[in-house]
């Protein structure tokens, strides 16, 4: 199990670097798919089967497919990409450092919280469902409302050109 963990972690890190480093937008998107899939494998190894499956359905299966679809439709060529200015690169680097500075304390705290051995949880889908519809029903419904508003907003923005 530990060997598998390190293998998946390696894939996860390589694909994460690949997202940023590859010059082709479609390669980036595919690396991101690999990244999200390895996160799903991590969830599965922690016996969070429901989370793993939802991760694949939502991120790898729906969102990234649409991203890939748009990238292919636009057919972005390498020469069409504008070269980044020194200022942009500098600012991006600064932002990255700030993010790292925020992440370090968070990581230190969360390492302690990681369960050392994967516990066998039975019926975790049932448990997640129960929690979502009892204790967390308000945030859950609020999130669905937010998504609904986003969908309607996207359609409104896209269709505005065609209105008389």
């Amino acid at each position: 199990m530990t060997a598998l963990f390190f293998l998946v972690a390696l894939v996860l890190l390589i694909s994460a670097v690949g997202v940023v480093a590859s010059r082709n937008a479609i390669h980036s998107a595919l690396f991101l798919v690999g990244n999200l899939m390895s996160v799903a494998v991590m969830f599965a190894m922690l016996n969070a089967h429901f989370l793993a499956v939802v991760q694949v359905i939502v991120y790898a299966g729906a969102i990234m497919v649409l991203v890939l679809f748009v990238l292919m439709l636009l057919n972005i060529k390498l020469e069409n990409q504008p070269a980044l200015g020194k200022l942009v690169i500098g600012l991006a680097g600064l932002g990255g450092l700030a993010f790292l500075w925020m992440m370090v304390p968070l990581l230190q705290r969360s390492f302690a919280a990681i369960p050392q051995s994967a516990v066998d949880v039975q019926g975790s889908v049932r448990e997640v469902g129960k929690l979502l519809y009892t204790q967390y029903v308000f945030p859950f419904e609020a999130a669905s409302l937010l998504i609904m508003a986003a969908v309607v907003g996207a359609v409104m923005l896209a269709k505005r050109r065609y209105r008389a």
Binding site: M37, I57, G61, F69
Partner: peptide, 24 residues
């Protein structure tokens, strides 16, 4: 696996990649 049938949906949703990549 605990998620059962949902696993089928997950696999169905990543089946798109092969086809999209082949086309590209």
């Amino acid at each position: 696996i605990d998620a059962g049938v949902l696993f089928l949906l997950a696999m169905g949703s990543i089946a798109v990649y092969g086809v999209a990549l082949a086309g590209w």
